[in-house]
Design a protein around this nucleic acid. Structure first.
Lengths: 233, 233
DNA sequence: GTCTATAAATCGATAGAC
DNA sequence: GTCTATCGATTTATAGAC
């Protein structure tokens, strides 16, 4: 193994230690107070040394964001892969997403919570961000979803079609094709999934749904069933 | 008017100036970097003087949170009051909530975004926070909502009932009464409303639904219609 | 590639004069 | 009730020795 190979391995190991430490600190301070210096301090490095690995606070954030998207998507993909039945896959994606979020609340908040002020996401984040939605798209395609939604035949439904151009474009890229109702409801289901997890995680549901873990899970599962009904899955 | 009266008026005026300035700064820095000193600086006060009005950073945050809940609820209540038709009231609540959020994104993020690390909400915030949900409860009661949801007859639906104890308790407090399905779907509709607004506002829907204001509004309106259908409104 | 030292700021909160 | 002054801490980022 060449010297550069060894260096590269050390470098990769240290980069991983940095993201681990940064993620640990995120449990205590929130993304916008994340400090490059504090990470270095905890690792026993000089504050200046860490800049050889991460050139700025924003780059550190990007690292954390990409790793969060990727690890969450990995977990969810594995959960979904355990069955081929479309309805069970849908439930596995929903429940798997929530489980990851409950286990890593600060990382979930990093990618789905309020934007970090002053931080502009680079292109690197959009690929990892679309992995879970792509799973949903796959299910819709598989079942050839043709949901019957009354709202779609109304004036509102017709005025909606131009709004879905982007979804159709994306569907084209991923070699899938559905009717507009399936597209719109798919986005709605995804929106609800993330919104409901956020609501539970961020404490907007205290005094509303029972606080026990079992109650909260039962309620979320109910929501997933309702959405499945809407999608005709 | 007594001296204390004059003082009280000055005090109230300055308190309002403080919240205004703090809200303005929130458009640039995010809740967790909000600085008491920076507010004082912008107002031309000494940093120590402001502590006569706001005893800590957390108290300033509470002030902002309560005012955000109250102003949003005020706007939405006024919008809802323009009609008595339940369906139109529902749409007015949904569209009014989104409009306020688009006009005041940082204040929406303050109350519905990721929690501010280290900040614990005092009791003062729960009253203002329930005003909009109370509007929804009112509509459900008015129409005597009896939605038929397949998921409710399933095993999941039955296991859900204990989770709704808190909602029923709250419904009791507000002199309302519904069946469990209406309660569960009401929470779901509220969850979706906030989640969808967050998704649009926080940029999680770029490259998905058309980026123009008209497209985004049309899509949101479609979602509201679907939810109305679920609720039987 | 890690270190010390440093620049130029920021912050929350308090003490005490007026 | 507003001011100055201060404490004790933080931060991003760079310069330059080794």
């Amino acid at each position: 193994m060449s010297a550069t190979g060894i260096r590269a391995r050390n470098r990769a190991a240290l980069l991983e230690a940095i993201t681990e430490t940064a993620n640990r600190q995120l449990t205590q301070v929130g993304p916008s107070e994340l400090s490059v210096r504090a990470v270095a301090r905890e690792l026993g490095m000089a504050s200046s040394a860490i800049y050889r690995y991460v050139s700025s606070r924003d780059e550190l954030l990007t690292l954390l964001i990409v790793s969060a998207y990727d690890e969450m998507a990995g977990d969810v993909e594995r959960a979904a892969a355990r069955t081929r039945d479309p309805h069970k896959r849908w439930m596995a994606i929903g429940l798997g997403s929530r489980e990851w979020a409950l286990a890593q609340p600060q990382r979930f908040a990093l990618i789905y919570g309020s934007p970090v002020p002053g931080y502009a996401a680079p292109q690197d984040t959009i690929g990892p961000a679309t992995r879970i939605p792509a799973l949903l798209t796959g299910i819709l395609q598989e079942v050839g979803a043709q949901p019957q939604v009354p709202a779609f035949t109304s004036r509102v439904g017709r005025s909606l079609q131009p709004a879905l151009n982007d979804v159709e474009q994306w569907a084209g890229l991923t070699q899938t094709r559905f009717n507009d109702a399936a597209l719109a409801l798919g986005v709605m289901a995804w929106t609800h999934m993330i919104g409901s997890i956020s609501s539970e995680l961020f404490g907007h549901r205290h005094n509303v749904v029972g606080d026990s873990l079992a109650d909260r899970r039962a309620y979320y599962q109910f929501e997933l069933q309702v959405l499945a009904g809407l999608l005709g899955i």
